[in-house]
């Protein structure tokens, strides 16, 4: 008998068991996803002797991993919301924190790493096949470069948002989370633009533009120090505040979840 399984505090062994179950439950869906990727590439190879994912700088590999990862994140707590399976999920002998931790580890680290390894392997295979077919092969996609790691950093933050969305929304969590994120971005964009306008106006230039994706203002009149501060505020908001908020909010949604309403 494993003493760590029995304890009342956080148990890594229990979290690992939950994680293992998650991976085993997802395996068939992931297999289908993999088959779709291979199928699409096989079709393009039949048509043009090139594997589409290995061209266009490998952007499709990263895109496929990010999109499938976010779709999985949005389904992270599907079983918890289920009318029948939900009670079993809630009463599985692991604490809400252990269950939540397993989901975060699964989608923020294990899935992207595993998917990237598989993608690298497939890309290498496609490269060899293209070469053998007498075509100029596309480059082998690898995850070990700065751009992909940056994409992972973006994905990791977005994943926490979609995990929180999954903990909150029972139906169409991906669409609801996306819509909510867009609404927040829109409001935040307006507020920042207004703020920028006020700051820039005080410096005599009202033609400033705000680039949300880079958190910078396109203006010559804003002092460098304000630009730097804005950039850091933006980075902290994206890489610290947003994921911390999402994780805390998501955890409490899981903790407070009760079995679906029914009177018998």
């Amino acid at each position: 008998m494993n003493a760590n399984i029995q304890g009342s505090g956080f148990s890594f062994e229990r979290a690992a068991l939950v994680l293992r179950n998650r991976i085993m439950e997802e395996a068939p869906s992931l297999g289908i996803g993999l088959a779709v990727v291979v199928g699409v590439n096989a079709l393009t190879f039949l048509a043009s002797r090139t594997f589409v994912f290995n061209h266009d700088n490998g952007a499709m590999w990263a895109f496929a991993i990010v999109i499938s990862g976010l779709l999985l994140c949005a389904q992270a707590f599907k079983a918890m919301h289920d009318g029948k399976a939900g009670t079993d999920w809630l009463l599985l002998p692991a604490s809400p924190l252990e269950k939540f931790t397993a989901a975060v580890l699964d989608y923020v680290i294990i899935f992207p790493v595993a998917a990237a390894l598989v993608a690298t392997g497939l890309s290498a295979l496609f490269h060899v096949i293209e070469q053998a077919a007498g075509k100029i092969p596309g480059p082998i996609w690898t995850f070990w470069n700065v751009e992909v790691l940056k994409a992972w950093a973006f994905y990791a933050v977005a994943a926490t948002v979609f995990i929180a969305g999954s903990a909150s929304f029972r139906k169409i969590p991906f669409l609801k989370t996306s819509a909510m994120a867009m609404a927040y971005i829109f409001v935040l964009g307006i507020l920042l633009t207004l703020g920028a306008w006020i700051v820039v106006r005080s410096h005599g230039n009202i033609d400033a533009g705000f680039h949300f994706e880079n958190f910078n203002f396109e203006t010559e009149d804003i002092p460098k120090s304000i630009e730097d501060i804005t950039l850091w505020v933006g980075r902290i908001a994206w890489f610290v505040v947003l994921p911390v908020f999402s994780l805390v909010y998501g955890y409490f949604r899981v903790f407070e979840k009760e079995a679906r309403d029914e009177v018998q």
């Binding site: 009342s8 229990r14 029948k84 009670t87 009463l91 002998p93 692991a94 809400p96």
Partner: peptide
Amino acid sequence: LRRADLLADMVFVPEDPWLP
């Protein structure tokens, strides 16, 4: 509080059990 040790010490069998 759904502490793991208490959950391991109880079983609820619903009228229509869900199984994977």
